[in-house]
């Protein structure tokens, strides 16, 4: 059913005024159409500042996951994507993949190796790092998610919450500039969700997080981007957007 978009007046945010330390991610006028003709992204523009934590919300099928797959070149639409100073093109692809740490929704898809160590080492190994460096990075990444003693564990023995943390470690070991998470709190019980929120809060890294968990958005993300039908329909401070009941209702969102 077609939703008629209201004319949206962007809420001014610190981000839009330009970043102090320069932007980590810049997307300009990105369009993407699936081979079957379905338009998934339409004129998407987005800037992320150094150290910013941004939530990406919107109904299923809004294009959130498609957008995320563009951030490290798994999908290639029309438009400009820049990570740091690098435009995303074929030559920069390997480097950009290590700069953007993309964590998929289902940790069973993200953790594809028999052991935790092998999975966390996968990224650094494929970056071509020497063995000692790989081991250092694995230890460092596991320490960051407080899972150091899980190094030798088998992936299928982990709980959902543990899998989600290890999944984050699998990209942290590449020392990315941005962490891009797809539905990190989905499928977690309250305790595991709380632990995950605390973990995300303490990590200083720039973050773009797609989620339906509006309580987490309010608690953790000062800035919120709303997507629907392949477009960005709002981008601004979470506190203000959550007050805009018309906006929330139009895009199937609920105030926590």
């Amino acid at each position: 059913m077609p939703v008629t978009h209201k004319k949206i007046t962007p809420v001014p945010t610190p981000a839009m005024a330009g970043c102090e330390d320069g932007d980590v991610l810049k997307i300009e006028h990105l369009d993407f159409t699936y081979p079957d003709g379905h338009v998934a992204l339409w004129d998407v523009s987005l800037d992320l500042c150094q150290g910013e934590k941004v939530a990406l919300v919107g109904p299923n099928g809004a294009g959130k996951s498609t957008l995320m797959l563009h951030l490290n070149g798994i999908f290639r639409g029309d438009g400009i994507v820049r990570v740091g100073d690098l435009p995303l093109d074929k030559a920069n692809l390997p480097l950009i993949r290590s700069m953007v740490g993309l964590v998929f929704q289902n940790p069973d898809d993200q953790l594809f190796s028999p052991t935790v160590f092998e999975d966390v080492a996968f990224g650094p190994l494929h970056m071509g790092l020497p063995e000692d460096e790989v081991r250092t990075r694995v230890d460092e990444a596991l320490a960051q998610v407080h899972m150091s003693n899980f190094r030798e564990r088998l992936s299928h023995h982990l709980s959902m919450g543990e899998k989600k943390r290890i999944a984050i470690a699998t990209v942290l070991s590449m020392r990315p500039q941005i962490l891009v998470l797809d539905e990190p709190s989905a499928g977690l019980d309250p305790r595991a969700r709380r632990a995950l929120i605390n973990l995300l809060r303490e990590m200083p890294i720039t973050m773009l997080v797609s989620t339906h968990d509006m309580a987490m958005v309010r608690e953790l993300f000062p800035r919120m981007v709303v997507m629907d039908e392949g477009r960005i329909v709002a981008d601004g401070s979470t506190a203000e957007l959550l007050e805009d009941e018309a906006l929330l209702e139009a895009h199937g969102l609920e105030r926590p």
């Binding site: 594809f112 699998t170 990209v171």
Partner: peptide
Amino acid sequence: AMLARGYEGQMRTL
């Protein structure tokens, strides 16, 4: 998920 972590057709293991 493999592509996102730098896989280019060669599996490397330690």
